[in-house]
């Protein structure tokens, strides 16, 4: 069983992004996180391609099969034909943003204080069409009226060059938990 969430991503034949591109991509991801912490959701949504896909597969513990096993994380993730934790396209993500911005959602009004740390950014060039496969790790802390929560994991992004800027075409988030102490998942 191959975790489809990863199999849809290029895994071989990639070459590292140039120093200049790698730096620009890193800055892009930091600024993206800042937009979310600043709750500028519309500006954040503009960073995505029109037909983007945002997926958080479910993760579960499985028994490793000794020496025969690949020990791969992909085998712990829900396949494409199973239920993920989150699946968003532009329409559903926009609906979540409308919901939050309505001010009538108890979970987001008052909003949480959030701090997103993005680290371990590794950018690889996928092809000559200026597509980049970018891996990164995140740690998000959020706080509301005495409740403090942390969530951590890694992300596999497909980025497209857009002039001097970048657009996210696909994001797969791999969580570091199998039970999520977190409601309102979007916007990792």
């Amino acid at each position: 069983m191959t975790g489809a969430a990863l199999s849809t991503l290029p895994v071989a034949g990639l070459s590292p992004a140039s120093g200049e591109d790698a730096h620009a991509i890193q800055r892009f991801l930091f600024e993206e996180a800042e937009l979310l912490d600043d709750r500028r959701y519309r500006a954040w949504l503009n960073l995505w391609t029109p037909d983007f896909e945002y997926r958080v597969p479910a993760r579960f513990h499985r028994q490793q099969d000794g020496l025969k096993d690949t020990w791969g994380v992909a085998r712990e993730l829900s396949r494409d034909d199973e239920l993920p934790v989150v699946l968003h396209d532009r329409t559903s993500m926009e609906a979540q943003i409308i919901r939050i911005e309505s001010g009538r959602s108890a979970s987001d009004s008052p909003p949480w204080f959030t701090t997103r740390l993005i680290a371990n950014v590794i950018a690889d060039r996928v092809d000559e069409d200026d597509r980049f496969h970018v891996r990164s790790r995140f740690l998000i802390q959020r706080y509301k009226r005495g409740r403090e929560q942390f969530i951590a994991g890694s992300r596999h992004d497909l980025l497209m060059r857009a002039g001097d800027d970048w657009r996210i075409a696909r994001r797969t988030v791999i969580l570091g938990s199998d039970v999520y102490r977190w409601a309102s998942f979007a916007l990792i």
Binding site: P84, V86, A106, A183, S184
Partner: peptide, 16 residues
């Protein structure tokens, strides 16, 4: 997923 689960449009408010 659109309705329930931690990122459905109903569940975050129910959880809150």
């Amino acid at each position: 997923l659109g309705v329930f689960g931690p990122d459905g449009c109903l569940e975050p408010d129910d959880a809150e």
